[in-house]
Amino acid sequence: MKVIYVRSNPVDPDSRVEKEVNSLIKLGYEVEILAWDRENSYKVTESYLDLKSGKVKIYRFGLPGSFGGGIKRNLIPLFKFQIRLYSWLVKNKSKYDVIHACDFDTAFLSSKVAKLFKKKFVYDIFDYYVDAFSVPKFAKKIIEKIDHNVINSADAVIICSEKRKEQIKGTNPKKLLVIHNTPEDVKEDLKDLNLNKTKIKIVYVGILSSGRFIKEIAEVIKNNKEYEFHIGGFGVFEDYFRELSQKNININFYGKLPYKKTLELEKSCDLMVAIYDPHIPNHYYAAPNKFYESLMLGKPLIMVKNTGMDYVVAKHNIGEVIEYNVRSLKDGIDNLVKRRSDWPGMSIKMKDLYNQNYSWTMMELRLKELYGELED
Rank of each mutant, 00 (worst) to 15 (best):
K267F: 01
S66R: 14
S328F: 04
S245K: 07
R339M: 11
L353F: 04
D185S: 14
D334N: 12
F138Y: 08
P10M: 03
N196K: 14
S94Y: 12
G206E: 01
P300I: 09
K261N: 15
Y285V: 07
V337W: 04
E30C: 03
N22R: 02
K141V: 10
I99K: 03
K55W: 07
S209E: 15
L370V: 08
V273N: 06
E320Q: 15
K91D: 10
K247D: 09
N181H: 12
D131A: 09
L244G: 01
R84D: 11
K330H: 15
I25V: 14
T198N: 15
H316I: 02
I71R: 01
Y276M: 12
L365C: 08
S110C: 12
L370C: 04
I333T: 00
Y227P: 02
M303G: 02
D127W: 06
V130N: 06
Y123M: 08
I4L: 09
K349G: 10
V44G: 07
L27I: 09
K222F: 01
K112S: 05
G308K: 03
S359W: 05
E46H: 12
V6N: 08
K256I: 13
V21C: 01
G332E: 07
M303D: 00
T106S: 06
L370R: 00
N252W: 14
E243G: 00
R366K: 15
I125Y: 10
S209P: 04
V157C: 00
D352G: 04
K225R: 13
D50E: 14
D310E: 15
P77K: 09
N9W: 11
G255N: 11
F121E: 02
V98E: 09
N92Y: 07
S53Q: 10
I202H: 00
K305W: 09
K57D: 04
N22G: 01
K191W: 12
L190P: 02
V90E: 12
K175W: 14
I221D: 02
L271K: 01
G206T: 07
Y285N: 01
I249T: 13
Y204V: 05
K119N: 02
V17Q: 04
I168D: 03
R339Q: 13
F67V: 12
S134L: 10
M309Y: 03
T262F: 08
S23N: 06
F108H: 00
